[in-house]
């Protein structure tokens, strides 16, 4: 963990059809850390990730990856620079097999041996994906789909992994498994930006948590602090 800032968001304003959803957002993601963004739904968490990934063009403010300004670049360029998003709801390629979905994750990699190696690594972390390799993505269960989504994100290599609500719509026991994987990824030194509605699972893992409300960051603190600030949780996250 070098501790240097990998991603720096400063004064970001972004939205749709002339209306800003995000106002003056600023935060940093140090290398090797796990940063979590929490907040009620519809308050800008996904908009933020989309803006970072280039699916949405920010209206104002800046985003830096290391030394490089990336705000306003097209999505494919940002992915090529190593910012990888595992989007909300998986967004798998429904008519492709698990194997094809995973290889799509490594689209930018031309070297077959590197792709092969990454595939083996992903299979090691998520062995189920190897079993189900030839199955069509549309026939998988919710938990399996989530794993494919994460595996697909890992296939890209990448410097920064962003996960948009990885626990969405899953049974608690599956969520446990997902967070085991996330914990393993963090332990192996990956830099992770996590977005969740409910922070419970992420608290212990996160160096820092930011609370997003109505497009503003209203509170920031260490992950462990959050459990002590139950009034925050009740006010903003409905207990």
């Amino acid at each position: 963990m070098s501790g240097e800032t990998l991603l720096a968001v400063s004064d970001l304003a972004s939205g749709y059809k002339g209306r800003d959803v995000l106002h003056g957002i600023s935060f940093e993601v140090p290398e090797g850390s796990l940063i979590t963004l929490i907040g009620p739904n519809g308050h800008g968490k996904s908009t933020l990730l989309r803006s970072i990934s280039g699916l949405l063009r920010p209206r104002a403010g800046g985003i830096r990856l290391g030394e490089r300004a990336i705000a306003g670049l097209p999505a494919e360029a940002i992915a090529a620079l190593g910012v990888i998003q595992v989007p909300q709801g998986d967004m798998l390629f429904a008519d492709m097999t698990v194997h094809e979905n995973l290889t799509m994750g490594a689209y930018l990699e031309r070297d077959r041996s590197v792709i092969r190696r990454r595939l083996d690594e992903v299979h090691a972390i998520l062995p189920r994906l190897k079993e189900r390799g030839r199955q069509l993505a549309s026939t998988l269960s919710g938990g399996e789909r989530r794993m494919v989504g994460i595996g697909r994100g890992l296939m890209a290599g990448g410097k920064l992994l962003m996960l948009d609500e990885p626990s969405l719509g899953l049974a608690p026991i599956v969520i446990d498994r997902v967070y085991e994987v996330i914990a393993d990824l963090k332990a192996s030194g990956r830099t992770i930006l996590l977005v969740e509605e409910n922070p419970m699972r992420a608290e212990d893992l996160s160096e820092r948590v930011h609370l997003l409300d109505n497009g503003y960051i209203v509170w920031s603190g260490a992950g462990r602090e959050l459990s002590e600030r139950s009034e925050l949780i009740e006010t903003y996250l409905g207990g």
Partner: peptide, 16 residues
């Protein structure tokens, strides 16, 4: 095929 099945996901994977 990726673009046809899910354009945004394809973009996230670096498909131009």
């Amino acid at each position: 095929r990726a673009t046809a099945q899910n354009r945004e996901a394809a973009q996230l994977m670096g498909v131009p």
